[in-house]
Nucleic acid binder design. Sequence first.
DNA 1: GCGATCCTGGCC
DNA 2: GGCCAGGATCGC
Length: 288
Amino acid sequence: MPELPEVETIRRNFSSKWPKRVARVSLSRLAPVEACRRTELQSALVGATIQHLRRQGKYLIFESDRNLQLVLHLGMSGRLRWQSHQSSRPKHTHLVLFFWGGDCLYYEDARRFGTLSLLDHAQGDNPLLNRLGPDYMDPKLTVAVYQGRLGKHPKLTIKTALLDQRIAAGLGNIYACEALYYARLHPERRVSSLAEPEVARLLRAIRHCLGLGIEHGGSSIQDYVNGLGARGMMQEFLQVYGRSGPTLDGRGTVQRITQQSRSTWFSPEQQGPAPSLTEQALPGSGIA
DNA sequence: GCGATCCTGGCC
DNA sequence: GGCCAGGATCGC
């Protein structure tokens, strides 16, 4: 469900709350946590102080004063909600952190596509985060770095590459479609067909879309709400995602296709015709 | 690289 | 009842 802007919005909702010491932990039977770490998770967190909340791609990382971090991915339907006092538990609540002083943090996830993990090392070697590419908002991700990382996957279509969190982290289906629209690139182009200026344009478009998303508090298309229970407004500003008929700016029409069994929305007028077989076969000018 | 798969809920 | 959904991983 949530992509980088939604997760970042939630992180910011809580930024003034830390540090906070955990008094009690409640973990549901169905909580999406590795089975071997269930009991450990509770005992490790009780008494720990959460120093701050960090984000990498779509992951939220609770850094504690002990040598451990709680890593949360919200999957498709995960929600995190801050309450100033204990309240009734929504259905599908999997974890509640009760803090000293009365505040509580509720984590719910109906579909249980999310993941909860406990990592021992505050920095460095953890298999979960090591696989992730650099965050799209990280300034260290320059055009040259991005081009190099894309270049390792020349055969992927651009759309697929944008969703691949190993190349760079944070994009999901919504912002991938939007970024391709702003970059005026056809989603079925191969990575190998991208020239350097197009990569630069793409990275700029991605950051533009993610920035807009953050500015508007995320997209509440179905049921996303932020950490305080409020809906976002970005759904009002999407050019192509989920639309039929004209793009939001009226410059083209929206077409829906399926890639990797997921929907892609794009505008043929603005993003060019489907790439031709000749282009796909041409060696050379690309970045492969 | 691709498709199947893990789940529930909402909509037609 | 069937289909679709903002994600990621695991087989072939």
